[in-house]
Design a protein around this nucleic acid. Structure first.
Length: 346
DNA sequence: AAGGCGGGGCG
DNA sequence: CGCCCAGCCTT
């Protein structure tokens, strides 16, 4: 209780003025929480403002197409969030008459809402005393209480979850939860936390034992896969090109890209035209293939590095129905593709 | 329990 | 260059 009191005092003093903190509308709070999953406030902010502007209510979002939502989401990453967002909005609008579930348990039934988001919305909008445990909370608690259990282990999740729940202020779960996260984001940061001005430093185990840099403990980093993409940028005489939507599992599901020839290694032009995938796209004759970038563009995702060559395929007529290059900006595309479109002078 | 899923900012 | 960010879903 004392912890929570000091924490909330710090929060009142230091909190940022964020748009989703000026409302208790579960739609807006939910939207902000989805956007901020694994995403910094500074990165999510412009997207939040765009979405609220385009879709002021859950009904507006429910009416939108998935593609429309993906286009607005373009560049924010983890696109399943956008697809689930639209599904959940449809569910709330059509099945619940626009009323969000008002309990932790009910919120969990929404697509894309897990333990963290359900706790956040339930506590902030409905004052349900359920503790949030996000990356910030893991870090703050592991340092203050000197807990070295790996935060991404089953045991760690259980332990930190129970501690967080024990600490929560049942009278003010909204401020308590937001305060703990804000404290992690602003004061108890991953690198170089500001321990000198920290209200908890005198009792902080990590600080007093000089273990700040060791905590929290996280198990093994993921391996990075290397992939080789060859994009075929068709260009017809009447200014059209080909794009297609990515389907099925994998990165960028639902986004558009140029016809893709993926290979196990970097290839040259002679190899490319022999690739089966290439021959399926191209008509056998009358194309002229020109490599746009001699040095592959390396697009880095958290779990794979994509080495990319863009091949300009000039032809009289496209092998299948194309889109005007002027219309390209209507399609949701990965940042890798957007960067090319911005660079290439169509 | 482990792996997949984006993009960006920071030291 | 590695780490981490208001995590969730699938297998």
């Amino acid at each position: 209780m004392l912890f929570s009191k000091n924490l909330i005092r710090w929060y009142i003093e230091n909190k940022r003025d964020l748009p989703w903190r000026r409302t208790n509308d579960p739609y807006k709070v939910w939207l902000s929480e989805i956007m901020l999953q694994q995403t910094r406030v500074a990165q999510g902010m412009p997207y939040y403002l765009k979405f609220i502007n385009a879709f002021p209510t859950v009904f507006d979002l429910a009416r939108a197409s998935e593609e429309e939502v993906l286009k607005l989401w373009q560049g924010l990453g983890y696109y399943s969030r956008a697809r689930n967002l639209q599904k959940a909005a449809k569910y709330v609008a059509e099945e619940l008459d626009g009323n969000f579930p008002n309990t932790y348990k009910g919120l969990l039934s929404l697509k894309g809402v897990g333990d963290y988001t359900a706790s956040a919305v339930a506590s902030i909008c409905f004052k349900e005393p359920v503790a949030v445990v996000d990356g910030n909370v893991f870090r703050v608690l592991s340092r203050v209480f000197g807990i070295a259990t790996p935060i991404n282990s089953t045991e760690g999740k259980k332990q930190f979850g129970e501690l967080a729940q024990k600490l929560i202020d049942k009278k003010n779960p909204s401020d308590h939860n937001q305060a703990l996260m804000e404290f992690g984001a602003l004061q108890c940061t991953p690198q170089k936390p500001d321990c000198l001005s920290c209200p908890f430093s005198s009792g902080c185990i990590a600080f007093n034992q000089n273990r700040i840099a060791e905590l929290p403990v996280k198990l093994k980093k993921q391996k990075i896969k290397k992939r080789h993409f060859n994009y075929l940028v068709f260009l017809s005489d009447d200014g059209e090109t080909l794009v297609q939507q990515r389907r099925g599992k994998g990165i960028w599901e639902g986004l558009y890209e140029f016809p893709l020839v993926e290979t196990t290694a970097e290839i040259g032009q002679a190899d490319l035209v022999e690739e089966e995938a290439y021959r399926e796209y191209a008509q056998q004759s009358s194309e002229e293939v020109v490599l746009f970038n001699e040095t592959p563009v390396v697009h880095k995702l958290s779990h794979q590095h994509i080495h990319t060559k863009f091949w300009i395929v000039n032809c009289e007529n496209l092998p299948s129905e194309g889109v005007s290059v002027k219309e390209l900006n209507k399609y949701p595309v990965p940042v890798l593709i957007e960067n090319f479109i911005d660079t290439f002078d169509f």
